[in-house]
Design a protein around this nucleic acid. Structure first.
Length: 281
DNA sequence: CCCGATTCCTGTAGGC
DNA sequence: TGCCTACAGGAATCGG
């Protein structure tokens, strides 16, 4: 499911096919996504030229400018795209027939198609008129986990007095963005921290380890093209290969790769959480 | 403010 | 080409 590494893998995969190209046609087969597809999306996009793709948290940002044949009065703004938990964006060839759950196509000049597939429809695409950072969905987000603004000091400072378990704390987008269930589980294993531990009762030193672990696991996952559990494919249609590197996520009942103890499953913040009762304290 | 619960959706797994 | 239920989850939202 798309977390930060999967969105980043998608951005890198589709960017060379999109940037600088004009959108010649837009096909919306299913407008009922998590957020309804804007009624004027097609007229906003047709004729627009795509700028440099960016990512903020798990959002993909597609800036639009007026194209040569647009007339121009509607061109501009930014697409805000979220892949939800089963969404993928990939490049399809002109003439490749859509399959079930292929909800949106952006047909580009030159014949490539950006195709959005999302069986569970938890994702969405929205159009923003102004600065993306002023959108309420982006305005209150914490720092990027791979930026200098994310470190053990921040985790320590924000967690004082908090009784919530450290795992949902790490998954809180106001604390740090982009860390979903998979990578929170893996980072806590790497740092040797019990996911059930109250966030406010973890030392500064251990938060330094946790921040470093989160950074490391996310960077490694990006290198591997993300994690494919079921649906995820990159912008070029490839699965991600980080699944084979997972130490705890989805492995409850199996032996810990470090110590051999049986991995345990608990629920924290309404999310399945797997941990090693021996290595994580 | 803090925290837990609920909601959206559909494919898959597991029990019978 | 068996039916039924539980579960997966990002993030907005609500209630205590």
């Amino acid at each position: 499911m798309p977390e930060l590494p999967e969105v980043e893998t998608t951005r890198r995969g589709i960017a060379p096919h999109l940037e600088g190209r004009e959108i010649s046609e837009v096909i919306v087969r299913q407008p009922r996504l998590r957020v309804p597809v804007p009624g004027d999306l097609v007229e906003r996009l047709v004729g627009a030229r795509i700028g440099e793709l960016a990512r903020r948290a798990k959002y993909l940002l597609v800036p639009l400018a007026g194209g040569d044949s647009a007339g121009g009065h509607l061109a501009g703004g930014t697409l805000l795209w979220h892949l939800g938990m089963s969404g993928s964006l990939r490049i399809a060839r002109l003439g490749e027939l859509p399959k079930k759950h292929d909800h949106i196509d952006l047909v580009l000049e030159g014949g490539a198609i950006l195709r959005y597939h999302d069986p569970r429809r938890f994702g969405f695409v929205d159009w923003l008129a102004g600065s993306p950072e002023q959108d309420p969905r982006l305005a209150r987000l914490g720092p990027e986990p791979l930026s200098d603004a994310f470190d053990g000091e921040r985790l320590f400072a924000l967690s004082r007095g908090r009784r919530v378990a450290v795992k949902p704390f790490l998954m809180d987008n106001a604390v740090v963005v982009g860390v979903g269930n998979i990578y929170a589980s893996e980072a806590l294993f790497m740092a040797g921290i019990d996911p059930r531990r109250a966030a406010g009762r973890i030392s500064r030193e251990r938060y330094d380890r946790l921040a470093a672990a989160a950074r490391e696991v996310l960077a490694a996952a990006i290198t591997q093209g993300g994690t494919t559990l079921r649906d995820f494919v990159s912008g070029t249609g490839e699965p991600g290969y980080f699944k084979q590197r997972l130490n705890v996520y989805g492995r409850h009942g199996e032996p810990c790769r470090q110590c051999g103890a049986e991995l345990r499953l608990v629920t924290l913040g309404q999310r399945a959480s797997v941990y090693c009762p021996h290595c994580q304290i």
